[in-house]
Design a protein around this nucleic acid. Structure first.
Lengths: 121, 121
DNA sequence: GAGACCTGGTCTACTAATTAGACCCAAGCA
DNA sequence: TGCTTGGGTCTAATTAGTAGACCAGGTCTC
């Protein structure tokens, strides 16, 4: 039995939930951040992210394409070449995301310390 | 066999990954957003979020507490009362997060449309 | 008294999501 | 001939998440 096309319906009444349900998974944001500097191929993404499985990368890329965050371009060569790129929407998403990244950069020390303290108690 | 205290080690070399690994799950951000207006009790959070299981709520709250995003206050009454609150760190996190929420608000229409278009192709 | 009820969880048994790794395709190279 | 290469898909095994039963121990009703 071949795999279904797997189109998932997302229509949470709350728009933040609707977006968060898709983008708020383990990998989406990470992939978008990895694509920020520019075009990447499938295996480049695999290598740079490091601990994602092929299936999840493939599936998440498909979702991101479906939602209009990235484009997927296939070059009919052998071996095949497939390039992923941020769309304008994808880039615009990374603007507020950058604020989060900066926040993480600033506060990860505080968080790490909180974790350590919690362990001690 | 009683449940272990479950202290998870998080020390990804990349600080963004380190923070994202914890905060970037299904529920953390949602819980923090729900706590934004002020103190909430366990069952209030359950009701407001709606589709989270007790176990995940309990576990995620524990993680957020461990990382210093929220405080947990137990009042020794019967029936018990437990209140959750954002810390200063939690509030500071919601500042960049607010930019994301605004972004989602602005763009969810575009995304919904992209999904629909993808289905048609 | 004997129950029933309250909250904030935990425990267990089941189900859904994720992973690792084998496998596929066809051109080019040794 | 047969190995390599890139971008995946498929299957089996592991892991994460869910629903719902259960617990504690004061208070309220019968």
């Amino acid at each position: 039995m071949p795999q279904q096309p797997e189109i998932i319906e997302f229509d949470h009444p709350c728009p933040i939930r609707d977006v968060l349900d898709r983008i708020g998974d383990q990998w989406s944001v990470l992939i978008l951040l990895t694509l920020q500097p520019g075009t990447k191929r499938f295996n480049e993404l695999m290598r740079e992210i490091g601990d994602i499985s092929k299936q999840m990368l493939s599936r998440t890329l498909k979702h991101l394409e479906q939602d209009g965050f990235i484009t997927r371009t296939v070059y009919p060569e052998v071996p095949p070449r497939v390039e992923y790129d941020l769309t304008e929407l994808g880039h615009s998403f990374l603007e507020p995301m950058q604020a989060m990244v900066d926040w993480a950069d600033t506060h990860h020390r505080t968080i790490a310390e909180a974790r350590r303290r919690y362990r001690v108690i």
